[in-house]
Computed example of a mutant assay.
Amino acid sequence: MTSDVLELGLRSAGAQTLATYLLTEIRSGRIPAGAKLPGERELGERFNTSRGSVRRVLAALREAGWITQAVGSGTFASRPAHEPSAEWGDSDLFSDQTSPAELMEARLLIEPLMPALIVRHATRSDFARMHECLARGEQAQTIEDFEHWDGALHQALAQATHNHFFLQVLALTNRVREQGDWGRLKRNSLTPQRRTEYERQHRTIVAALEDRDAEQARDALQVHLAQIQRNLFEPPVG
């Protein structure tokens, strides 16, 4: 890993420490691809280094393909094209063998456990990311864009647990969602009325989390996932 840091051209000790941390966490999968990184100020305070050093680290990581940055959205973990994914090892095999029905059964059991951790650990930046996903999902003009931001919201929820187990579970969930069967079911099941209901449910979940009401958030998440499960396998009426 030291050689990786040297290849980034960083000289100060603080910058090298920060770069080593980010490279290690992203490469190992503990910070999964797509996860939003803390802001520059938070990183600077955590690693006792200047904002300028933080910017140089992020610029170097961006050039190397380890992060992406979007104006107004933030900084997100990524992986260079030549780097294999560290998540789950044989996750391609697992995801190929997991059907949408199995995925929804598992999500109904696992995801309602997240609110208890979210209300305990979520930061302002976590909630800001949730609200960004809510807004971008509601503005989406296509099913594909809506599905992207729907997935991003559930990823933001997992990230807000600050628990690596849930991040790894979500990484596998996203692999299954990328399969053709999931996309076909979602396209066939997502009517304008159902999308509106999903958006309302999303806001109810996030509002309960912001109120630090784990029980209400858990109940709202269970209702949301149960409706997704019904809608996926029940064709729209009319």
Rank of each mutant, 00 (worst) to 15 (best):
F47R: 05
S95M: 07
A116K: 06
R30V: 11
R120A: 12
A15D: 00
A106N: 13
A86H: 01
E111G: 13
R120E: 13
I143H: 08
G44Q: 09
I26F: 03
I118W: 00
E25L: 00
R41C: 11
H131R: 12
E25C: 05
H121E: 13
D96F: 15
P100I: 07
E102S: 13
Q16E: 08
H121R: 10
S50A: 09
R51K: 14
G74W: 06
A122Y: 01
D126I: 04
A33N: 14
A59G: 01
S95V: 10
A81K: 01
L134E: 05
Q69D: 12
L109E: 15
S95Q: 06
E87W: 03
T68R: 14
T75G: 09
A135T: 15
R62I: 02
T24S: 08
E63D: 13
D96I: 15
F47Y: 12
S28K: 05
F94R: 12
R46F: 11
I31K: 00
L43W: 03
I31L: 08
E102N: 13
A70Q: 13
A33H: 13
R27D: 08
T24A: 05
G39K: 03
G89A: 01
R124M: 12
L117T: 07
A122F: 02
L37P: 07
G137Q: 02
E45R: 12
R56A: 07
M130H: 02
S53Q: 15
A106E: 14
C133W: 01
L103Q: 12
L23V: 02
I143P: 04
F127E: 01
H131P: 10
P84K: 00
Y21A: 04
P112M: 04
E132M: 13
V57P: 01
P100G: 07
R41V: 10
A70M: 06
I26P: 00
F76D: 01
S125W: 06
E25A: 02
E105P: 12
I31G: 06
Q69M: 13
R129K: 07
A15K: 03
M104F: 10
L117D: 10
D90K: 08
E42F: 11
I31T: 05
G39S: 06
Q141N: 11
S53D: 15
R124K: 12
E40V: 09
R79T: 02
A140V: 08
T75L: 04
R56K: 09
L93Q: 13
E87D: 05
A77T: 02
R51S: 15
D96W: 14
H131G: 03
L61A: 05
E40G: 11
L109I: 14
A59F: 04
S78C: 05
P84A: 02
A106I: 12
L93C: 13
T24R: 04
I143M: 09
A122K: 03
P32Q: 06
K36V: 10
T98R: 11
Q69H: 14
T75V: 08
L61N: 03
N48G: 14
E138N: 11
P38Y: 06
R51V: 15
I26S: 00
A128W: 01
S53C: 14
A81M: 06
W66I: 10
A59W: 07
G44S: 10
I67C: 06
T75R: 03
E138M: 07
R62P: 04
R41L: 10
T24F: 05
A70I: 09
